[in-house]
Design a protein around this nucleic acid. Structure first.
Lengths: 127, 127
DNA sequence: TCGGGCGCTAACTATTCGTAAGTACCTACC
DNA sequence: GGTAGGTACTTACGAATAGTTAGCGCCCGA
């Protein structure tokens, strides 16, 4: 009787949410929003801090995360326009997990690079 | 002097690895490989268990994960062909983090669905 | 002998993505 | 006073990426 998702089922809505949260841009946006301890960030701040993201993808990503209830969006009707983004309780939990994983990957970069070199070397000698 | 990655830098190799590990298919493959406690899984097992993945994407995903040193690939030269995939030490750690996040998302599916409904309702009334 | 499974790969197509521009308004500078 | 820049987006279009289909050589069970 319990309602529980299953990411391994292609028809489960869980998978869509997982993709938003762990996707290329979603994960980075969540990570950056966590950075300043649950504070708020503006659209243009995120654009600058998440290097390489386009305005289109940032807008699209933020909308998906907002719909999933991971991010809170607050519009201030002033000129120039000002919109603040922050993590919800749900979003904070997700962001912490992602951020932890990313931190671990960053620390272990040398191991990954070594693995890649080894792989490429093995490939080269077999050809 | 410390070599450490930065996922927020578009030129850092860390980002590529993060994308492989958290991407749509990579994350699910890692999760499934973790499922049987570090055992091995065959190509066709993964294809069946990760619902919706195509053979092309599974092959591509496994190659990327192998190159990054997250997955170990062992070929048995028998007929019919048999290839076993398993997690490396690096991969096990990553898979645990992903799996934890996915489990949490699965448990909280109702919260996410509620957030989406609320978002959609707000949208509808404003139009 | 016919279908199916094994682990891929190659060719083709649909979908998504990134790039560049436009929007409407304001501030600062020369 | 005219131009350059900043705000938060949206739209249009070409490029990259993902998914679909088919094929490979070999074997097994029906």
């Amino acid at each position: 009787m319990v309602v529980r998702g299953d990411v391994y089922d292609r028809n489960c809505p869980t998978r869509v949410i997982a993709n938003h949260a762990t996707g290329q841009w979603g994960s980075l946006v969540l990570g950056k929003l966590l950075d300043d301890g649950g504070g708020t960030k503006r659209f243009s701040e995120l654009r600058r801090e998440v290097s390489g993201i386009s305005e289109k993808m940032l807008a699209q990503t933020l909308q998906a995360l907002e719909r999933d209830g991971l991010v809170h969006r607050e519009v201030h009707p002033v000129i120039p326009p000002r919109v603040d983004y922050s993590l919800t309780a749900l979003g904070t939990h997700a962001a912490k997990q992602i951020s932890e994983l990313f931190g671990w990957i960053e620390e272990n970069l040398p191991s990954f690079m070594a693995a890649q070199d080894e792989y490429d070397a093995r490939r080269a000698e077999k050809v």
